[in-house]
Amino acid sequence: MTQVIEAPDIHQAIKQTVGSPFTHKPKISTRNVDVFYDDKQAIFDVSLDIGSHEVIALIGPSGCGKSTYLRCFNRMNDTIQSCRVTGEFRLEEEDIYARGMDPVLLRARIGMVFQKPNPFPKSIYDNVAYGPKLHGLASNRAELDEIVVSSLQKAGLYEEVKDRLNASGTGLSGGQQQRLCIARTIAVSPEVILMDEPASALDPIATATIEELIDELRQNYTIVIVTHSMQQAARVSQRTAYFHLGKLVEVGDTNQIFTNPQHQLTENYITGRFG
């Protein structure tokens, strides 16, 4: 993720983002974002809006910075000593990087689902109840029960686990574990869900379930998804952003990006060409 390839000629080819990076009334807006790992620059002057209740897919080759950029949204990069983020990140009007912004509260509002399902070694119930307890979202057991059940329902997992809520979360199948992680994320009522390759470790059936879920979650949440699967990006997202060597090359309506991209680098990537 931290690898940055030097290629001055390609940097020349990406002078500015092609397409429409800005939206009306964005949920999250980012402006002139640079990210450095020590003195290596990983993200170059990226400006992009995330619209409310949209699924936006970030695609690009390995090392292009899409995960680095995604992790900036809820300040996951704060934990990396060498990482320095400059530029503007706003969640509606609030500055995400303001001094007064508590990262723990921020991460409740901007949740994250990772590539490998990472349930806590606790019961299914406790996995989902952990966040609401931490943030004091339930004042009694009945309220907590309701949050757990409704989160599992929204994640499309409840029917499969309702009889064994006290069983360990790690005993579930990979696809179920991932949906458990999604349930855990939505239990604290986030506004935005970040997904870093949420289905890349899953089989096609579990993948299809997750994709179906993403589409349903869009009703209530804004979703930013990083994916290596172009077909997945084409299926689940409304907008697609293509990153290359730390730059945002092109952003546009997903249908347009996959049928008629405007930048040669985007074209080369999604058609599997050298370039």
């Binding site: 092609v18 930048h263 040669q264 074209e267 080369n268 058609t271 060409r273």
Partner: peptide, 13 residues
């Protein structure tokens, strides 16, 4: 910018 329609440059031969 128009993109090139180069049929022969796929990674998969």
């Amino acid at each position: 910018m128009d993109t090139d329609l180069n049929l022969t440059q796929h990674i998969s031969n």
